[in-house]
């Protein structure tokens, strides 16, 4: 019985519109900040536009170039901020960003068990499931089962590394370059890369046409 379960929690509201009391609170906060010249409406609008421009499509450019350009891959491994800058992504000086190579020997998957830390400047805001109680609780103890829910099988003899993000350090997974992608342009390669592969919950394939 779900209601008798000791770990039962209310259904997440993360897919819903805010309740009226919170919508009203937001209006109050925005008005006070504007009245006190702490933040203007124009600044809020500009910030929304900036974040709207940050999407997995931007992150995919880093991945495609890493696959295609060994010098760039070296740079991304040592200074991901600089590498992101080279594909046109404006990066903050802080926090630190780290590239995790998925290879034939090791598969990385990223979580933030304490909250929702994520490479937002590169990928935009995280998906709701990444912030969810169930993902945060489970992926550190049963990662193979969690990946299976995403349709990903990691063989038992392959090392599976779960990486816990912090406010000070964010991770971007470099997925394995899929078989059959030889000779593709960087633009074509970027088209293969998905958000979930850069979090590490899925692997990539070249679609069969």
């Amino acid at each position: 019985m779900p209601h008798d379960h000791p770990h039962d929690h209310p259904v997440s509201r993360d897919h819903s519109e805010p309740r009226p009391a919170f919508a009203a609170l937001l209006d109050q906060v925005l008005k006070v900040l504007d009245d006190k010249d702490i933040l203007t409406t124009a600044q809020v609008t500009a910030q929304i536009e900036d974040m709207d421009g940050r999407t997995p499509t931007e992150g995919a450019k880093i991945i495609a170039r890493c696959w295609d350009d060994p010098d760039y891959l070296d740079l991304a491994r040592t200074d991901l901020q600089a590498a992101a800058g080279q594909v046109g992504i404006a990066m903050p000086a802080y926090p630190k960003f780290v590239l995790l190579d998925n290879t034939g020997d090791v598969h990385h998957v990223v979580v933030c068990t304490l909250c929702s830390c994520y490479p937002r400047p590169i990928l935009g805001p995280p998906p709701v499931w990444y912030k969810s109680r169930n993902y945060r609780a489970r992926v550190v103890v049963e990662p193979r089962d969690v990946l299976a829910e995403f349709g990903t099988t990691v063989p038992q003899d392959k090392k599976l590394q779960v990486v816990d993000s912090t406010a000070d350090c964010r991770y971007l997974v470099l997925p394995e370059r899929p078989a059959g992608s030889d000779g593709m342009t960087q633009e074509q390669l970027a088209g293969l890369v998905t958000r979930d592969s850069m979090i590490g919950v899925t692997r990539l394939n070249v679609p069969v046409t």
Binding site: V44, V111, T113, N134, A137
Partner: peptide, 28 residues
């Protein structure tokens, strides 16, 4: 908030397009 390792159920993978409320709070 310290959820790592606690028992929990299936992950709801439903996508959610951020609402205007979400975006304004994020910007704030």
């Amino acid at each position: 908030h310290d959820l790592g390792g606690l028992p929990a159920g299936k992950i709801d993978q439903t996508e959610h397009e951020p609402t205007f409320f979400d975006k304004r709070v994020d910007a704030l």
